[in-house]
Amino acid sequence: MDENKTLRALAALSQKTRLDVFRLLVKAGFEGMPAGEIGEKLNVRQNTMSTNLSILVNAGLIRNERQGRTVRYFADFDAMRGLLAFLMDDCCNGRPEICEGVFDEINCS
């Protein structure tokens, strides 16, 4: 991921609802979630949710797929990996021991 894409991604995630949506879609995994269900889970009105989903799509963090009358959204795990890789690319100036423990903070249970 380049610097401009990183800035767009971070700008999109800098708003609470969009951060909550992204985290929810990451938890949903490869199955994703329908737009209506995302709004219900986060208690966000449909028009507000639509705007936030569009911003996340345009930032390249999520993708959508039409399934009949429903639009399902998915976290873009390649984009997430790219963002994390960009942020940690020069991890501690060649001293990885400084970054040790970062992945211990992630709860994948």
Rank of each mutant, 00 (worst) to 15 (best):
L24W: 01
L7R: 14
P96C: 08
I55E: 05
M88H: 09
F74T: 01
A85H: 07
R63Y: 09
F77Y: 05
M1K: 07
C99V: 10
K41F: 04
R66V: 08
V57I: 11
R66Y: 02
G36D: 07
N93S: 14
I62S: 01
E97P: 01
A12R: 04
M1S: 12
G68Y: 05
E3K: 12
P96E: 12
G82H: 04
G94F: 04
N47S: 15
R45C: 04
S109Q: 07
L19M: 15
G101K: 14
F103Y: 14
I62V: 15
G32I: 00
R18A: 09
G94S: 03
C108E: 05
D89M: 09
L83H: 04
I106C: 07
T70R: 04
K41R: 08
L7N: 10
C108R: 07
L61Y: 00
D20G: 06
S14H: 14
I98Y: 12
Q67K: 03
R72D: 02
E65F: 00
G39E: 02
A79I: 06
A12W: 03
L19I: 12
R95F: 07
V26S: 02
E97T: 07
F22M: 13
I38D: 00
C92K: 05
M1N: 13
A11I: 12
N64F: 08
D78H: 01
R66G: 02
V102G: 01
N107Y: 11
L56W: 00
S14Y: 06
N93M: 08
E105M: 15
M1H: 10
L53R: 03
R72Q: 03
K16E: 12
E37H: 07
N52T: 13
T70V: 08
L10P: 06
M88K: 05
G29I: 00
D89Y: 06
N93L: 14
P96G: 10
N58H: 14
E100D: 11
G29D: 08
A75C: 06
N64A: 09
T48E: 13
A79Y: 02
L7A: 14
F86L: 03
L24F: 01
I38G: 02
A28D: 04
G32F: 02
L13W: 10
G39N: 02
I98P: 00
I98C: 05
T48C: 12
L13S: 12
M49G: 02
F22Q: 03
L87C: 14
E40L: 03
V26N: 00
D104Q: 10
R81Y: 10
P96Y: 08
D20H: 15
G82N: 05
C108A: 08
K27S: 06
D2M: 09
R69I: 07
L56A: 05
Q46K: 14
L24H: 03
Q67A: 04
I106H: 06
L53I: 15
L56K: 02
A12E: 03
V26W: 00
A79H: 04
R95G: 00
I98N: 00
E40R: 08
V44H: 15
V44F: 14
R45T: 13
R95E: 08
C91K: 06
L24Q: 05
G68S: 08
M80R: 05
E31K: 09
G39Y: 02
I38Y: 03
K27R: 09
M88S: 13
K16L: 13
I38V: 07
I62L: 12
G94I: 01
E100Y: 10
G60W: 07
R63V: 13
E65K: 01
T48R: 15
F30Q: 05
M80A: 11
D76F: 01
